[in-house]
């Protein structure tokens, strides 16, 4: 199966939801959307026009794919929402802000900008304790990580995404969900997966600060200007939690979650009538 299905432990979470062994998810008959995006749900490297089933989070991704000639989408909702079903939230006091500086990727893009400037903007805006969560690419960079630590923020990393089925931290989303549920606010300098997750998990969401230069981003995948037009509710230091939460749940496909039996069929995990799977 597509190795990106293992990223962030997506396949593992869905396996647990489906009543299978989460440590060894069966091959998925398709490719699971691995992050929130304003494009079609898949990354630049996925050019699966009519081939693989594209297991996307929301119908919006299906629509966006349709207009560029892609077909064979199945809207299943985000693995994070399945995890939220598996781990219902226990009532607890929320405090402070979890701040996600927008991240680059190991393979393609990097961020180029002034982290000190961003740190100053965070200090000016947030009035409670701040946890800065770095993506492992930046977390592993002592220069970047050190700046946030030196600023007095609590600096964490949810884990490693994995690559080619190796090094996947299948509890990545578990940690992220726990952290989000501990914080009152989620913020970032670009509207991204973490902000959408946070809004869906009950945080007040805010996108502000220097968005930095997204070096190496592929044409059409940089949403600067468009995101503000499409999702104005998220932008600014203070936002309407009701509006952002509703949008986030829609973006994650909350209305499209399948029950375990159906999901097993959608993922190709329950086809005894076939001689082999995948």
């Amino acid at each position: 199966m597509d190795h990106t299905n293992h990223w962030y432990g997506h396949a593992h979470i869905l396996a647990e939801y489906c009543g299978l062994d989460p440590a060894a998810p069966p091959p998925v008959r398709g490719v699971i959307q691995h992050g929130w995006t304003f494009v079609h749900g898949l990354g630049y490297g996925h050019y699966n026009d009519w081939s693989f089933t594209k297991l996307v989070w929301s119908d919006l991704c299906r629509r966006r794919g349709q207009v560029i000639g892609w077909r064979n989408f199945a809207v299943i909702g985000a693995p994070l929402l399945y995890l939220m079903r598996l781990r219902p939230e226990a009532p607890a006091e929320r405090e402070g802000t979890i701040w996600y500086p927008f991240h680059g990727t190991l393979e393609y893009e990097t961020l180029d900008g002034d982290h000190n400037n961003l740190i100053a903007q965070i200090r000016d805006t947030e009035d409670g304790p701040v946890t800065v969560c770095l993506y492992y690419v930046e977390y592993d960079d002592p220069a970047v990580r050190g700046r946030y630590e030196d600023a007095g923020f609590r600096v964490i990393c949810h884990g490693r995404r994995g690559q080619q089925w190796v090094g996947t931290d299948r509890f990545f989303l578990f940690r992220q969900l726990d952290e989000l549920r501990r914080h009152r606010r989620v913020a970032s300098n670009r509207l991204s997966t973490a902000v959408v997750y946070g809004a869906a998990a009950g945080c007040e969401a805010a996108v502000y600060g220097d968005p930095m230069e997204f070096v190496g981003v592929k044409a059409g995948f940089n949403g600067a200007g468009l995101l503000e037009a499409l999702y104005p509710e998220f932008f600014g230091a203070q936002t309407d939690i009701g509006a952002t939460s509703a949008i986030a749940l829609a973006e994650l496909g909350a209305d499209f979650l399948a029950e375990p039996d159906e999901l097993r069929y959608l993922l190709g995990w329950d086809e005894p009538w076939l001689a082999s799977s995948n």
């Binding site: 050019y47 560029i68 592929k218 044409a219 940089n222």
Partner: peptide
Amino acid sequence: MGRTLARIVEL
């Protein structure tokens, strides 16, 4: 069927 990424346009 070729790659269709060309249909994703720059903003």
